[in-house]
Design a protein around this nucleic acid. Sequence first.
DNA 1: GAATATAATAAACACTGTTTAGTAAATGCA
DNA 2: TGCATTTACTAAACAGTGTTTATTATATTC
Lengths: 204, 204
Amino acid sequence: MAIKERKEREKQEMRNLIIESATQLFLKQGYDKTSIRSIADDIEYSPATIYLYFKDKDEIFYVIHENAFDILDKHLRQHDGIADPFERLGAIGRTYIKFGLENPDYYDLMFIMRAPMEQIKNEEKWKAGECAFGYLLTTLSECLEQKKIRPAELHVTAIMVWSFVHGLVSLYVRERMCILMMEDDATREVLYSSLDLFMANLKT
Amino acid sequence: MAIKERKEREKQEMRNLIIESATQLFLKQGYDKTSIRSIADDIEYSPATIYLYFKDKDEIFYVIHENAFDILDKHLRQHDGIADPFERLGAIGRTYIKFGLENPDYYDLMFIMRAPMEQIKNEEKWKAGECAFGYLLTTLSECLEQKKIRPAELHVTAIMVWSFVHGLVSLYVRERMCILMMEDDATREVLYSSLDLFMANLKT
DNA sequence: GAATATAATAAACACTGTTTAGTAAATGCA
DNA sequence: TGCATTTACTAAACAGTGTTTATTATATTC
């Protein structure tokens, strides 16, 4: 019965085709403008076909969402080698911000958008997200252990750090940094200087 | 020619009627579900009539957006009496967070949503927003003058502070704090503890 | 080869924001 | 007062959206 396996493979290939097209369109023109019909056009199938492979639009973007978390995770883990946890924390922070500025659409989908949240709240609660957040927790608990930062409850510290970098990126991504009335390059410099100041304040 | 004045008044009344209805619907069911047709239904006029008073949906929500900034501004200014700028800063922070948690839809419209941003970028650049941000700048420059906080460039410091509180509120409002896997009350407590920790780190 | 299961789609449904063409009432002027 | 003009309003349409249903053509099973 190799036919069933082939069918399964073909089904997965079709799902991949849809995800690839959706990702490409999404990164090119954003979530709202990526309609089911535009994906269907792109892969040269009818819109209804897409619903044979995905429950709804959210399910498609939940897969992209998961992929984005994998990419961020790879970026952050590249600092695993840094022995000093405080230095590692700084590197993670810079990389997080860099990821957000360079992949605003991914960042939006992961941490700002409301759309595919129904999926996220179910499933293995934040699977991918827990991973990156877990990495922050481990790094911070090392910092606390070695008294590199002010003693405080681990989760409170983690939320403080995450909120700060998320605030930086999300205000930038959603164009609220225009209040600075600076050129884009100057604005980005303020962001990174702001991270340096934050880290200086954090240090014991 | 009192007729012209009456007509002008009636026009303004109609605009107010639309805004009131839109605000009420928006706060009850959010931006996306507040359609032009639902507003029209509510005020018992045809959808096309609304377009005689507002250019498009964005223009309606830009007015609500402005009103929301007025409300936030009033909340923040209530701490004008606090003489010590560092204490005042803490009070402003708490009030900012409280406003966000208690008015998530207003907060969303003001600092997260993409929708009525076209309007904001034009007009008297951030008029209302500059006001609240300006208040933060004054308070922080007093803190710097009196050496209550670590010396640093004013705008860098302001962005650090704003990003942090915005991060807190926006992660909460867009339901990313569920990563803590805590009850809502406990999560809110973490937020406020996180503010306390941030302020402690900020202090010289 | 006939019966069944699978894959794909055209067309429709119920929405959305917005525009256009046409109607009825209020106003300005003689 | 009577007529022309401006104003206020709307029904209907347009071009989209996500999603569902009924139907057709193909592939698989027996």
